[in-house]
Design a protein around this nucleic acid. Structure first.
Lengths: 257, 257
DNA sequence: CGGTCCTTTGACACAGGTCAAGTAATGTGG
DNA sequence: CCACATTACTTGACCTGTGTCAAAGGACCG
């Protein structure tokens, strides 16, 4: 037992969910964001043909959540699959006593809710105001059976997540606090670059506690390690929710690999 | 830096590889082991039709490795995908200084080597004499494009691995040594049950150091924790490579979730 | 402007890592 | 079948990185 409880936080009310009927800016390319996915993966991401996109659009709905809201809880019936179009989401698993492991932070272009179990294996919560595309599981599975290109793309995405999960196991199992935080900041930085944003002022939509639960540490240790890296001149902290990477090279070597 | 190096062990010679031309007992059902996979997943694992199986068999070869041999190294060109038909395999990632994280132990029915990168993201090494089916990447990808059922099955398997990886993150990030070892033993036990073996004398083909590198501990701590669980009557150690679960219920509560 | 929450910092504790024997299991040559 | 070497596992003594507990800023908000 190496960490305090988040039980209170865990019992979050199921997020109030407002369905936005009409599509806004990105009609569908963010649903299966070929550009983002390809950039991330160097993958062979053939675009869906227009007819296929239309069938997807037919079953899709847009949803928005306010900061702090739950999208779904661990163990709830898995009725929807989502892609993030704006905002930031955390996904996490809980132990009975409230210890929490954040298994991922999601940004525009990422998807969540894929499981062929009929229950979600993790909870998902919004960190900032967030827009998502929602696909009902049943409908999506029916389309999958008929659209090999769609399934191919999902396999592609799942393979990536798997590789990322293995990197995270290495981090959690074998890296020091300093190495973990350095790795984390570089990961966020590269995520921003993939999405066409700047590499350096990295934005931190999540709390220190969220970072701690992602890195297998406590918020105190995260805080101390930020201070340490700042003192050593590897980064600056203009605000609590923002980091500039002053010496990315040094940060990379601090990341251990 | 919380663990000693395995650098010497890491520089394993590429395993000598003997190709067995003719199929032995399981022609193909272990390649895409519908029964095992379905049992593990409660998944909708439609069997491949005979024509599809024949095409798979045409590109498949059988390979065997002696204990301790490497199947492939992290970073090597990913030229093959494998399924285990007999024996036991470990897959792992390394840091520059030799720290190691075992990301999985594989048994008959499991597959490895799937990546749409052109390099393996992890190394794989055989723990006991092991037989595998090997599929050349190029050939398999060509078949994938034409056989949606095959792709569906791979997506299914990848989803499972992803769920398992998330469980492992929870273990590595938030569980105590005792909880980790208990979880590990139960996992092995359930793996045996899935493969139609007995639940209780759990066999441990891997060394204490391998277990440690899987659980994010040291071999000393693994050893001490085994002793502790034995002393408390939760299990017995008839030999170093075998554990009987005396009180699986108590072990489950010791596992923390 | 007082309250609440989050972050930072400090003092201290402890789980698990490190170092070092000691012991058992396995293999090898004679 | 037995010295002997080798390797893996266990156990003990001690140490350290990170967790725990506590308190003091700071930011935000009604």
């Amino acid at each position: 037992m190496t960490s305090r409880n988040h039980a209170a936080e865990a019992t979050s009310a199921a997020g109030r969910l407002s369905v936005v009927a009409r599509a806004e800016r990105h009609p569908l390319h963010l649903v299966y964001p070929c550009d983002i996915c390809a950039a991330r993966a160097q993958s062979s991401c053939a675009p869906l043909d227009p007819a296929e996109q239309a069938r997807l659009a037919a079953i899709m709905s847009r949803v928005k959540f306010e900061p702090g809201r739950s999208i779904f809880d661990e163990g709830a019936p898995a009725e929807g699959v989502y892609t993030v179009t704006a905002g930031a989401v955390k996904v996490f698993k809980l132990l009975a006593d409230g210890r929490r492991q954040v298994t991922g932070f999601l940004f525009p272009g990422d998807f969540l809710g894929l499981t062929h179990d009929d229950r979600y294996a993790y909870g998902a919560e919004v960190m900032t105001a967030t827009s998502l595309c929602r696909f009902p599981r049943r409908g999506l599975e029916a389309l999958l059976a008929e659209m090999p290109a769609l399934e191919h793309r999902l396999l592609d995405m799942a393979s990536h997540e798997l590789a990322a999960a293995q990197d995270q196991m290495l981090l959690l199992g074998r890296k020091s606090a300093r190495e973990r935080l350095a790795s984390f900041l570089l990961m966020l930085s590269e995520g921003q670059a993939r999405r066409g944003e700047e590499r350096s002022p990295v934005s931190l939509p999540m709390s220190r506690a969220d970072i701690a639960d992602y890195l297998g540490l406590t918020s105190e240790t995260v805080s101390r390690t930020f201070t340490q890296l700042k003192t050593q001149g590897l980064l600056q902290l203009p605000g609590e929710k923002e980091v500039s990477l002053v010496r990315p090279d040094a940060l990379r070597s601090a990341a251990g690999a």
